[in-house]
């Protein structure tokens, strides 16, 4: 324990609030450190003199000391409408309105987002299924040699056809 630590624990030491191991380290330090010993001596010299329990009681037990407060608080107690504390499932939960609104909005947004995601997933599944069917069809067509008919022109050559998009014609 160093001098800095001593200065932050001196009140706890004087009040007897230090754990025993910490107290031992404290004592070990002040045995060898004069400045810290002086601090402890000075702190111990501070004399707090609060009113005793009897003095306090004698003040508060005067005639009508609490009378004014009792009258005022009785009025509030009569108007007190608080449900008694029962089992957890019967307790009323008091939450601030903005917090409830924020929670409700967050839950609504999460539900909407979830539904949207589900719809997108379904569409994607349909599209991939459709694409698969198309590919399968193409593959089958390509596998059938007789489907593509040979050219019927006289020289036996294929006729090249081009498409002109600006005129939208072949």
């Amino acid at each position: 324990m160093d001098c800095l630590m001593i200065s932050s624990r001196v009140a706890a030491f004087v009040d007897g609030e230090l754990e025993s191991c910490e107290c031992e380290r404290f004592v070990l330090h002040i045995e060898t450190c004069d400045p810290c010993t002086q601090i402890v001596i000075q702190i111990e010299a501070q004399r707090f003199s609060p009113l005793s329990a009897d003095q306090r009681r004698s003040i508060c037990e005067r005639g009508a000391f609490w009378g004014e407060m009792d009258t005022e608080l009785n009025g509030h107690l009569d108007a007190l409408v608080v449900a008694p504390v029962g089992p957890w499932h019967r307790r009323r939960v008091g939450l601030p309105v903005p917090m409830v609104v924020a929670y409700a909005a967050a839950i609504l947004l999460a539900v909407v987002w979830g539904v949207q995601q589900q719809e997108r997933a379904q569409l994607a599944e349909l599209a991939s299924e459709h694409l698969g069917q198309q590919l399968e069809k193409e593959r089958r067509l390509a596998a059938q040699p007789g489907v593509i008919t040979p050219p019927v022109s006289g020289d036996g050559s294929y006729k090249v056809v081009t498409y002109a998009p600006e005129r939208a014609s072949f």
Binding site: A12, I43, Q46
Partner: peptide, 16 residues
């Protein structure tokens, strides 16, 4: 609490 109380007592010592 321990450190604040110690600082408070040290400060009180200075003031006194």
């Amino acid at each position: 609490v321990m450190s604040r109380l110690s600082r408070a007592r040290m400060r009180l010592m200075d003031v006194m």
